[in-house]
Every structure is written in C-alpha cells, then in structure tokens.
Design a protein around this nucleic acid. Sequence first.
DNA 1: ATTGGCAGTCGAACGGATTGAGTGCCAATC
DNA 2: GATTGGCACTCAATCCGTTCGACTGCCAAT
Lengths: 340, 340
Amino acid sequence: MVSARGLDVLRVIVQDYVATREPVGSKSIVERHSFGVSAATIRNDMVLLEDEELITAPHTSSGRVPTDKGYRVFVDQLADLRPLTSAQRQAIESFLGQADDLDDVLARTVRMLSQLTNSVALVQYPSLATARVRHIELVPLGASRIMTVFITDSGRVEQRLIDVLEPLDDVFLGEMRAKLNSALNGQSLPEAAERLANFADIFAAERQAVVSQVASSLVEQVLANRHDKLVLAGTANLARTEQDFSGSIFPVLEAIEEQVTLLRLFGEMQVTSGSVSTRIGRENAEFGLEETSVVTGGYSSSGGDVARLGVLGPTRMDYSNNMAAVRAVARYLSRLLEEN
Amino acid sequence: MVSARGLDVLRVIVQDYVATREPVGSKSIVERHSFGVSAATIRNDMVLLEDEELITAPHTSSGRVPTDKGYRVFVDQLADLRPLTSAQRQAIESFLGQADDLDDVLARTVRMLSQLTNSVALVQYPSLATARVRHIELVPLGASRIMTVFITDSGRVEQRLIDVLEPLDDVFLGEMRAKLNSALNGQSLPEAAERLANFADIFAAERQAVVSQVASSLVEQVLANRHDKLVLAGTANLARTEQDFSGSIFPVLEAIEEQVTLLRLFGEMQVTSGSVSTRIGRENAEFGLEETSVVTGGYSSSGGDVARLGVLGPTRMDYSNNMAAVRAVARYLSRLLEEN
DNA sequence: ATTGGCAGTCGAACGGATTGAGTGCCAATC
DNA sequence: GATTGGCACTCAATCCGTTCGACTGCCAAT
C-alpha cells in the first residue's frame, strides 16, 4: 500500500510534471523539495506508486509521469484549491460588472475564465427548464410571414420565423398576441406548452387552422430548450500546449467545434452549484477527448436553474488553479445573475 | 520579361506545390506535364520567374516555391475558377434550404463553406445600415428594469437591458411602446436615431427624464451597428495544415479568435457583390496573419445591404477551388436572402 | 525502514558519411 | 536566339555509430 509520504511523492510528481512538462526523477525530487530522505527512498516509494498505476515511466530509465489514475487521486485527495489572488478577484469583478445583457455577461465570463486558466473555457447558457414566460411578440414580416419572439424572465430571447398558411392582418395578429400573452404570461415552459396545445380552440372555427399552426410552432420553440447553447473562448491556448497531445491538436479542435459533443459532455458531469467536478483523460474517450481533462462547475441563474461552465485543456493541466478559477467564476456569476 | 510559357510554368508550380506541399523542380514539371520542352528549358524560365520574385528556392538545390507575389499573379491572371460539381451545388441547395431563421441560415452557410474549402470559413452578419425598423418592444423585467427589443425588416433582433430611473407601470410602458412604434416604424436606422433625439418632447414634463433615458439607450442600440457580428467554422482545418505555418498555429488561432480583427480585415477588402477578392500572405501582416490568405465575396440581403463572407487558410491554399466556392455560396446566399 | 553505491538502460545529442533531387552553367544543336 | 544534353556542384535529408547523462533497479550495509 501507498504510504502517506508516497502520496506526497505523487503530489510533487504531478506538480513538477505540470510545471515542467518533463518526467520527474527521484533525484530532482529530493533536491527541489525537502523530504528529508534520500533519493533511494523516494525510488522505493515510486515503485509502489507504479504498482498502483498512479505513475508510469515513458521508458526504462526516465523519470515518472502521472497516469490518468494518478491525476484522479491528485484531484480527489491531494489538490489544494488555492484561492485566487485579490488581484484576480478584482479583475473578475470589474470586468464582469460592466456587462449589460445576458449575452454580454456570458461572453465576458468565458473570456475571463480562459484568461485565468490559459485553457479553453466553456459557458453554457442557462437552461430554460424552470424559466417562465415573460412575453410573447408576433411581428409581421410580410403578408404571410411572421416572426415569433419569445422572452423569458431569465432575460433570454428566442426568435423564429413562420410562413403562415394564410395572410394575417394586423388586427388579428394583435388579438392573437393579446390572447397568447394572457394565456402564457408567468407560466413555466412545460405549462406553457400544455396550454398551447388547445390554444386554437378559443378562436373562431375558420381561424383555427392558422392559429394552431402558430401555436404548434411556439410549442416547438418553447420545448426546444434542447436548443442549448454554449459559448467558448481561448481555443488558441490549445496550440500553446500542443506538445501535450500525442498527434496533432486536430481531433481536439474538431471535437470542440461540435457543440453538441460538448453539451453531451457537460450533461454527463455531475453538477452541484458551488462545487466543481472533474473528468480526466480517458474518462472523456467517448467524445474523442481522451487526451484532455475538463473541470466544470455549476452556476445558478435567477430562475434557480443550474447551468454549467468549465474549462478544457490537456490532461497535463494545472488542476489546482483551474478548479479554483472555475469555482470562483461560477460563484461570482451566480451572484451576478441572481441579483436580477 | 516572362514569356507566355513562363507563366504556364508558374501556374504548374503553384498547382503542384499546393497539391504536394513540396518544392517543385524542373524535372518533375516536365514529367508531370506535357510542355514539349526539356527540363533545361524549364530551368531557364525559372530563373526569369525568380528574377521577377514570383518564385523562390528555399535553399540552393531544391525545387521552387511560389512567393506571395507569385500567388498574386496566379490569382489575378492564371487561376481558372472551375465551377462547382453538380453534387456540390446540390449539397448547398439542400443543406441551406432547410434553414429557418437568419441565425440558422448563416450557421449553415458557414459550415457548408468550411466543408467545401477545408478551411476556416467566415460569414459576416448583414449590416444594419440600410435596414428599417420593423418593430420595437418594451418588456418589463422588474419594477425598474426593462428590456428593449428591436427588430429590423431584415429579420435581425437586438435586445438590451435598461435599469430605468423610476418604476414604470404597464400602462405607461404600453403608451411608450405605441408611440415608439408609430414614430419609428419603417424608418431607416439613421432616421430612427434622429427621431429618437427629441422623442421625449411629446410626453408630459414629469415623464421626460425617464423617456429620454430609454430613448437614448435605443439610439445607442440603433447606432451600434458597428456591433457587427460574424460566425466562424472549421477552425480545426487549421490544425490539419499545420505544417504550412512556420512556427505554431498559435498566432493564427489567436487572431481568429479576435472577431474585431477579422471584422477590420473584412472591412478593408473591396466588396462587390458577385465577385471575389483575395488577400495573400503578407498583405495581411497588420492583422498578425502574414502566413494566411483570405478569399472573400460579398452577398446581399433583402435590405440591399452588402455583407461579406469568405475563407481563411494558409497561403498555400487551393485558390481556384476556394474562390469558386466563395463565389457560389455568396450567390446562393444572396438569392436565398433576397427571396424573403 | 533507510541509505549509498554501482551496474545497466535508453533517449537525446552530436558528428560524419552517403544519397539524391535539383540547380547553374556551358558548349553544341536546331 | 531558343533549346538541349551533359556535368560539376550544392545541400537537405537520412542513416549509423558514439557519447553523454539522467534515470532506474538492486543489493548489501546501517
């Protein structure tokens, strides 16, 4: 079994390897850290760590490198989440504070996060699941073409075009708008969808066809909170850490471009507002991201909804820093969004 | 001076180099193309081309590689824009045809373009310069917080939050909404801004402060068509052509992430709807993109506005194909947007 | 349990020889 | 004057052998 000192050895191996990108040997450990024992002793500990598959040697006679499992133990047991410096906190406050609408807040957040971590940063838009309908607008764009705009109390705006079956005059549009708003205002999205199902019934028979067309388009729009979005920044940081990927960074870039993939990945990660969770290396294999790790945290918006944000980078990343940054940014973002 | 055959030689040098990424020598030219002359003759032509700085040899005794100037001549005089295959045309039609709103159209366009060219594709949102106001909506989000939504006839929706000076009740909001719409509907954006300047005058004195707050926020929103957006796809393709960049692809990725840079770049390129223009290599130096080329074309939307789309890739790109693809996609997109 | 010592391993770095694609030049030819 | 074959020359790329150095693993002593 691995001794307490053994774990310390693992910790410094992770730290040094992350810092230098070079396999770390017993000798360099004793001279860089004060373990009070000799290199030979460290070597003995390393054999045990290797037996447990926490570290591995790229080739005989080279230093050791953490395995995915080693990183996992580090993250779960050894990492100290050093809090951000006050300069960093201040940067977050002042930079995010200036934002005006939701888009802007999230855009600033994702940039901030990628700067703090030197990694790719991701922020998911707040889910609409518990949001409530604030307003519905119908805008004529032509004789038989209207735009539906749909606004939630979390400040999200969704729009969509419909080619309607028959021309609609302004008066009728006004009537429909008023009825829609009085029927749906304040409803949660699932409730709203339900009410829309037989919304056409309250109209004159000859209008029901076109009304139910509009209504069913709205239902789609309301339920398409699968239409989840996320914003992303700091892709260039991947190129900086290129050497950390076996082949090229091509597959990583490709996976990142596919927002659906990232959303699935986010979806699989446990989300508890306020704490962070991690996926390391091959744990992400199903997404083509077996050489990357992802650190995510949940943040909550006014609706009480929990959405995710996080960073993605090479497995050899600075977990302590990144976990701290994700946690701090998530908390700050929650506070900012709940104020409203 | 360079003979006609000399230009033919330049053409095949560009073509072969683009195809193989290897400096091309006189011998490989005569055996791969039927020039009807010997390698020595080609060599003579090549020294002339080199005198004109159209090609260069990476080192003594290696084949030749086009210079930026060589690519320029190729693009301006030698490239044959081979039309797309019918399969490609069909792919465009069927893929873009399914789109529903403007966001979706542009998202599909940019993906399509990046697939057709194996490059990074960019599509600028249609400018609002000649768009007209279709509808203005004021939505209460809290006692003293409202969202302004602003819809143009080109189908663009802009929203913004305002913290108003004093609480506004629904009745008054309704009045303001009605007056705003009757004052602004159908106006072009500069006209709208003008009318907003003294919009507050038609309200009761005690309301003018808050009204003019809302109005001036709307003016900002209306005039912020500098708030140009663009969408982007195919970043991963850069990694595939990594060897074409001297150092790493880091600076390129960095420049691409900065949308402002790209918009400035777009802004400097001549735009004539229907034709394409090119910027090659060091012509983009001011943007940190001295190792890339950009091919852009203009497309026009319903408002008659011209916006840009294009592709960006290593200087060693397939200009013939990319110019053809940009032109075809731009035309198709124009047609699609003008239908509405 | 810890330690110093020592043989052994293996990648990285260096240097020299070889190879081959390609050039430049020149005298001969059409 | 343009074209051609021939030839010496250059230089990156490749291969091969050596050296170097940072490690490890093991063992006997503490």
